[in-house]
Structures are given as C-alpha cells and as structure tokens.
Computed example of a mutant assay.
Amino acid sequence: MVKHVLFVKLKDNSPASCEAVKELFLSMKEHIDFIRELQVGIDYLHSERSYDVVLELVVDSPEDLERYQSNDYHVHKVKSYIHKVRSASATVDYIY
C-alpha cells in the first residue's frame, strides 16, 4: 500500500476557500476508482507554520500512485485548480 500526503497552504485561507478545496479533494473518490482510502482535513490552529488543508489518500501500489498522478480528473480538475489557489504545498509518499 502507498500513502500520498499533500499539505496545501492557500492564498486565501478563509473557511469558504478551505471548504471548496476539501470538497474538490473528496470528489476524487467518486472519479478515481482505484483510490482505496481518502481523507481531507482543514487546519484549525492557523499557526505561522500551519498548512491549511491536508489530503491523505491510499492506493495499492507505486504504479497506482503513478496512475493517480496522470489521471485526467486529477490533472485537469483537481491539480489545475490547486495550482491556481495555493501559495505553497508539500508532499510525502510512502510505502507501508
């Protein structure tokens, strides 16, 4: 199993913007059938070092993570939107 964790800092971290990103991330479960698990959280501390939204998803293999990275819905709907609204992001991908 592979876990993909993405932290996103938004240019506008208002509750409405964070919720919009959360809903967009959650929509991937309906459009990408090989995602095994998907969780999204919104930061509540808002400290200087906090990121605003976290995405955690699980796929079966490194090959599935590559499929996810090139999936049309992910690339054209999710990733393109996130690139417009983020000020920073960080990711960790690991096998467990």
Rank of each mutant, 00 (worst) to 15 (best):
S80W: 06
Q69Y: 04
L6V: 15
Y44K: 08
K3I: 06
E56K: 04
E63T: 07
D12V: 05
N71M: 06
E56C: 13
H83R: 06
I95T: 15
D33T: 10
A90K: 14
P62R: 15
V92E: 13
L45N: 14
F34V: 04
D93W: 03
H83D: 07
E66K: 01
Y81P: 02
L6P: 03
P62L: 09
N71H: 07
A20T: 15
H83V: 05
R49D: 11
Y73N: 08
H76I: 10
E56R: 03
D43Q: 07
E63S: 08
H74G: 02
K77G: 00
Y94A: 06
V2T: 08
R67P: 11
Y94H: 09
Y51V: 03
E63D: 14
K29V: 00
S14V: 10
R36P: 01
A20E: 07
P62V: 10
L26S: 04
E30Q: 15
R36D: 13
S70V: 14
S17V: 10
E23A: 09
A20F: 07
Y81R: 09
E37N: 07
K84M: 01
V75R: 07
K3A: 02
K11Y: 13
A90G: 13
Y81T: 11
L6E: 10
I42T: 05
D12G: 04
D33F: 05
I42G: 02
N71A: 08
H46Y: 11
M1A: 06
S87Q: 13
V5S: 02
K9Q: 12
F34H: 12
V40T: 12
A16C: 00
L38I: 10
D64M: 10
I82Y: 07
H4A: 00
V21R: 01
R49C: 11
D43A: 09
I35K: 05
I35E: 09
S47Q: 01
E56Q: 08
R86M: 14
H76R: 15
L10T: 10
S70A: 04
E56D: 07
F34R: 06
V85P: 03
E48T: 13
D72V: 13
A20R: 07
S47F: 14
I95P: 12
L10P: 08
S27T: 10
D60C: 00
V85K: 04
V21D: 02
A20K: 13
L57T: 12
D72W: 08
K3C: 08
L65K: 06
Y51M: 05
I42D: 05
S47L: 05
C18G: 07
S80M: 04
L55T: 02
K9F: 08
V78R: 01
E30N: 09
M1G: 09
